[in-house]
Structures are given as C-alpha cells and as structure tokens.
C-alpha cells in the first residue's frame, strides 16, 4: 500500500533538513503506529505525504500502490485514496459542515469518473455515519469546525474519513486534546473502518491511544528517521522507560 523509501525533506524557506532518509512500508490492511519525541519530524511526514506547501523533497520516494504521491497535487492524492486526519482541524467560517463534506465527496467521485451523489443519497449516508460517531444533526449544519470543542473536531475528522472511504489513512496526533470518552468514540470510529483493503498510519505521542486502536507494527522515529520497528510491545516499552534508551541504542 504505502511505501516510503529514503525520504529526505527540508523546509522550503530555510535550510533545515527535517526528514533524513525515512523508510517505511505499510502493507494493505495493517495499522502502523509512529511514536517519537517532539521535533522528530512526525507531523512533517504527514504533511509531506498529503502535499502541503512549504516543504522540499530533496531525495527519496513515497508511493501509494506503486503511484508516486510526491508528483501529485493534494487533491489528486485525496482522490487516489490518501486521507490525513489533521492534528489541528481547520475552521472554515460560513461553510456548513454538510456542504463541505458533500463538496469533498463529490469532488473525489468526479475525479475518479464516478457519478456524483445527489443531495438525497448523500444525506442518507451522512446521517447514518454521523449517528455512529455521536455527531448531532446540529453539528452537521454548523460551519466547519467553527466553535467545535477539541473532541468534536476530532470526531468530525473521523466522520470525513468515514465519508471519503480512503484506502490509506494518516492520523496526526488524533488523540491530542481528547478526554477519555472522546478517545473511545474516535477509536471506535477508526476500528469500524478497519478492513483488508484499508491501512492506517497512526502518529501519536502516547501509548494509551494504542490500547484502543491496536497496531500491527510500531515504529519509533527520531531526528527524521525510523530508528526502530517492532510489535505493540514497543509502545509499552516507550511508555515505561521513555525514549532515552532507544535513542542511545540508535546512537
């Protein structure tokens, strides 16, 4: 599914290298977690994969099912099946949540040469999925993320994920700012989406999210590279001992 090979990325405006030869593979149907200390380049990775401006790829590659992501516009990556759940979902005043979702869904359908959903068809699907995430009809009508609580914003990201049905989901610190109940709701939403054809890359600081969303593989990232990969027990180890030993081990 997602293959990242020797990826080198620097900031466009300054001479600062963030990713320094990152290699990672997420096979179809698997959930991989990336953990690492602050400043290790985790969020940069998610932005570079989804095509945000401000970064320059100096070497390496990233492909989704063999297609190079780095040559595509952000919307093309989305249509190809990539989705980023934002750490800080963006507010768009005046644009109804429902309008936003429908525009997004239909833009992707159009890009893939599929028929656009009518208002009626769309409404039926979105209502059912919103109910599962305990998103009220009122929240669907309100402007995108405006005045949403932290938990509401993150649930809204998962609703978008559920509506867009991506193959490759990247979640950037989706657990930050969530209370216990919200974390459970979000995790249930994600778990419901797990399937053979869909992969997840879960970026997090804390092990607790991984209690809810059980990863197949855990990667430790530091200084722009993956320094160690292992099973779920690796996350527990970090929780217990911090990153110190792992960093020292990696030299």
């Amino acid at each position: 599914m997602l293959k990242i090979n020797n990826l080198h990325v620097k900031l466009e405006d300054e001479d600062k290298q963030i990713l320094k030869g990152l290699t990672l593979e997420v096979p179809a149907g698997e959930v991989h977690a990336i953990m690492g200390p602050n400043g290790s380049g985790k969020s940069t990775l998610s932005y570079v994969l989804s095509g945000r401006d401000g970064y320059e790829v100096t070497d390496g590659s990233a492909t989704l099912d063999g297609e190079s992501l780095l040559d595509m516009e952000p919307e093309e990556r989305a249509a190809a099946g990539l989705f980023l759940a934002f750490q800080y979902p963006v507010e768009i005043p005046g644009v109804g949540n429902m309008t936003f979702l429908r525009t997004a869904v239909n833009a992707q359908r159009k890009a893939r040469g599929e028929a656009e959903l009518t208002a009626g068809e769309f409404l039926k699907v979105v209502r059912a999925k919103a109910a599962e995430l305990q998103i009220s009809p009122d929240m669907l009508k309100r402007p995108v993320n405006v005045g949403f609580s932290g938990g509401e914003k993150k649930r809204n990201e998962i609703l978008q994920m559920a509506m867009l049905e991506p193959r490759m989901c990247i979640m950037d610190e989706t657990d930050s700012g969530l209370d216990v109940d919200a974390m459970r709701l979000v995790s249930e939403g994600v778990n419901a989406l797990r399937s053979e054809g869909r992969s997840f890359l879960v970026i997090t600081h804390y092990q607790r999210l991984l209690n809810h969303i059980k990863p197949d593989v855990v990667h430790i990232m530091s200084n722009g590279r993956i320094i160690k990969s292992g099973g779920p027990e690796l996350a527990l180890e970090v929780e217990e001992n911090g990153y110190g030993d792992l960093l020292a081990e990696a030299g």
């Binding site: 919307e75 990556r77 934002f86 005043p93 936003f100 997004a104």
Partner: peptide
C-alpha cells in the same frame, strides 16, 4: 490546504471559502 486534502481542486477550494465568507 484543508479543502484540497479532502479532494477539492484549488479553484473549488477558493470558491468554497469565499462563499463561506
């Protein structure tokens, strides 16, 4: 970027944001 990451092209994204405005 948020709009585009959800599949809208740049002009569609601008139109949506401006219509919201």
């Amino acid at each position: 970027f948020y709009c585009r990451s959800r599949g809208m092209d740049e002009e569609e994204a601008v139109a949506l944001v401006v219509n919201g405005f």
